[in-house]
Each structure stands twice: as structure tokens, then as C-alpha cells.
Amino acid sequence: MSSITLNAAASANAARRGNVLGRRLLIAAAWLVFAVFLLLPLYVVLSEALKLGFGTFFDALLEPDAISALELTLLAVGISVPLNLVFGLAAAWCVSKYEFPGKSLLVTLIDLPFSVSPVIAGLIYVLLFGAQGLFGDWLSEHDIQIIFALPGIVLATIFVTLPFVARELIPLMQEQGTQEEEAARLLGANGWQMFWHVTLPNIKWGLIYGVVLCTARALGEFGAVSVVSGHIRGFTNTLPLHVEILYNEYNHVAAFSVASLLLVLALIILLLKQWSEARLSRLKSDAAEE
């Protein structure tokens, strides 16, 4: 009896030793990949940016073109993210609370910006709103500039970041169902009260997570914006475009300095994402218990 127990324990131990070895190898490999592909570039960006000291670093950031690029980027993000929030919320609401023909088609189409190359997205807008484009004549008659101006940059950013909020909310709202909303209506709440007191608190963390992802993508968007912006320094250059221009001019220190600014913004967003994700997973495990 005791020898059987011992044998079993020994073989379990052997299995565990094997597991431990395999586990350590896997963890080491994961860290290695992480270090080479993520940490090393980070280090290079920062070390290149600071190669000539903090003086040149800050000069590159405080240069008028850099500041106008930062302003333009924040403006484009500030317009496109709220619009996508409203759109994502509306789309998720329709999909999860109503039955209508073409619903699955709509859900598929929401994902379109993920599968279309951003460059093509930019080109679509040039073909529509450019001087030679479909609406080009009408727009120039009315003196409206979309391509090579802020509206084009905002449109391109909206297109590329459109799915984030909706994608995050649709499964969450479908899982939660409509009963709490029905209960609220039966208790006399009007549409706005129902949304504010019942729906929004239930999807809050999913919404924040979607907005954070959307913001991250909008900040860094290069391809689509590059096509529609026209690269006019001090006017239609966003931060990623500004980095590229500086780099092409062999102004490496300035390029990496501006890049590290983007990096800091990205890290802040990453922390926000981590925080909202933790709250969201708690919410989901609660829902699963129901």
C-alpha cells in the first residue's frame, strides 16, 4: 500500500520535473522574444533620442513643426475617438437589442477596416473627395477642402479605428441580454434613464477598454493618414508622419526624440488598457456566474 503511494508520488514528481523544465524553457523563450522584438527597439529609440543629451532632445520636441504635429494628432484623435464611441455604442445597441434583416451582414461589415489595408482606405477618400475625385468638383465649387486637410485626416482615422468600440461592446451586450433594460422600463424608466442608470454602468468597462484601444490606434495611424494628408509641414503633418520626414532627412536624433514622445503616449494608454481590462474581466466572470 505504502509502496504504491510512494511509486505514485515518485512518478508524479518525475512528471512535475519534466513539466518544470519545459515550463522554464517556454518562459525563457517568451522573455527572449519579448526582449529582442519589443524591449530592444524601445531601448534603441530612447538611446538614439538622448544620444546628444537632453538639450537636443527637448529642442526636437519644442520645434514649431513638432508642436504643430502633436496638436494635429491630438485634434484628430479628439474628434475621431468620440465619434467612434457614439457609432460603436449605437451599432452594438442595434445588434444586441434588436432583430432586423441584414444584421449579420452589418456585424461583418463593422470589421471591414481591420481587413482592408489602411493605404487603400486612404486612397478611397482621395478618390471620393480629391480634386479629381467623385465629389471633387462640387467640393471645390463650395470651397471645401477635405483631402490634404484636417477633415481628410479625421475621416481616415475614423475609418481605421471604427471597429474597436463596437467589437468590444457587441459580445458584452449580447451576453448581458435585454432583461435588465426590460425591468427598468417596467419600473417606469424612460429611454434615457434606462440607458444612463442600467445599460451604461453594465458596459462601462468594456466601453473604456474599446475607447483606449481606439485611441492607441488613432494616435499611431500612419498609412491611411499618410495618403490623405499631403505631408505639409506645420499644417497637415501628424506625429507619425513627422517622425518619418525627420528620419528621411537623416535627422535621426530629432526623429527618435519625437518617436519617444509617441512612445510615452502609448505607454500611458497601455496602463489605461491594463486597468480597464482588469475591471472588465472581473465583470465578465460575474456575468458568467449568473
Binding site: 435588465e180 426590460e182 425591468a183 442600467v198 454602468p201 453594465n202
Partner: peptide, 11 residues
């Protein structure tokens, strides 16, 4: 109205 699965406001 009382629902089978209660439909209490979870938050």
C-alpha cells in the same frame, strides 16, 4: 413584473 432569472440590476 418578476422575471425567471430575476433581472436584478447587477451593479
Amino acid at each position: 413584473f418578476v422575471f425567471q432569472h430575476y433581472a436584478l440590476f447587477r451593479h
